[in-house]
């Protein structure tokens, strides 16, 4: 069980003690190989949760364990940096080196790998994000496209070979092609067994990528379950200012018109399948 949160509360020092804490009595388990999507509007505690899971912040109370190590200890938080990769918002803004290879190699070198091991880690990480070392390695990261820069930045995080990857709004600010690149990359990484936690505002991205969805509200858990379960609670989600995926909205419209598609469809594919089977159920006779 890689990430376990037990009654975790985090209150930033110096904030109003009467207001709700940034993370408020949150309990959560993220299983090995799970893809957890985290949603919630601004100030709901998403970014704080990310920092807690990555060991960059210590909980005020409660317990965070990652791969069995209690993060209350400083040494455990430091050791965690090899196991957990974290991709912050606009990760391409952290690029700094002259060449792609050098930038991606920053993490492995900082962790004290030998030059040879580091090079292999770089090669491996770039291959994983589909930016081959021999083509892009010697180029300046600043002359790449937005989506490519972001993939290089993600490779820089993957280079330390984490088995958990945490991403904060990985698709923000990219054009549709860039978004598709990143989405495909994340799906591929997850298929290879990586545990992924992704914060996003885009319900369609969450629905198409995540296995489970956590909805945060005022630092606490508002809903937690599969995308279909969570997005079935459309009215409640709308009440707290969140949307639902387009497919779920469309399915709800259809059922309001008396066409029952059978449950909540959170992805266009699932909805298309449901509609297709509906059409077969009706039988060919209707068309005549």
């Amino acid at each position: 069980m890689p990430i376990v949160l037990e009654h975790v509360t985090l209150r930033y020092p110096g904030t109003d003690p009467t207001a709700h804490p940034a993370v408020d009595d949150l309990s959560l388990v993220v299983d090995d190989g799970e893809y957890l999507g985290v949603i919630g509007h601004t100030g709901s505690g998403k970014s704080t949760l990310v920092l807690l899971m990555a060991g960059l912040l210590a909980a005020t109370s409660g317990r965070v364990t990652v791969n069995g190590a209690d993060l209350a200890e400083r040494s455990a938080r430091r050791a965690l940096r090899r196991q957990v990769g974290i991709v912050f918002q606009y990760p391409e803004h952290q690029l700094f080196a002259d060449t792609v290879a050098e930038d991606v190699g920053f993490g492995p070198r900082a962790l004290g790998l030998t030059a040879r091991e580091a090079e292999r880690a770089v090669d491996d990480a770039l291959e994983r994000v589909d930016m081959e070392l021999c083509t892009y390695g010697h180029r300046s990261p600043f002359e790449l496209s937005g989506g490519q820069m972001r993939r290089v930045a993600i490779a820089g995080v993957m280079a330390t070979r984490p088995d958990i990857l945490i991403l904060d709004e990985p698709m923000a600010g990219l054009d549709p092609a860039g978004r598709a690149e990143i989405a495909a990359l994340l799906r591929r990484l997850h298929d290879r067994g990586l545990t992924v936690v992704m914060v996003s505002h885009d319900m369609d991205d969450i629905a198409s990528l995540a296995d489970r969805v956590l909805v945060l509200r005022d630092g606490g858990c508002f809903a937690h379950g599969t995308p279909a379960e969570v997005f079935a609670r459309q009215t409640e989600l709308r009440e707290i200012g969140l949307g639902v995926p387009h497919a779920a909205r469309f399915a709800a419209r259809l059922s309001a018109c008396g066409i029952d598609v059978g449950g909540t469809m959170s992805t266009p594919e699932a909805l298309a399948d449901a509609l297709a089977s509906l059409r077969t159920d009706l039988g060919p006779g209707r068309e005549a």
Binding site: A54, L56, V84, F88, Q94, G107, P108, A110, G156, V157
Partner: peptide, 13 residues
């Protein structure tokens, strides 16, 4: 602060 955090997470010391 944001950049320091990002580089720290990549293993910078």
């Amino acid at each position: 602060d944001r950049i320091v955090r990002a580089q720290t997470a990549r293993g910078a010391d």
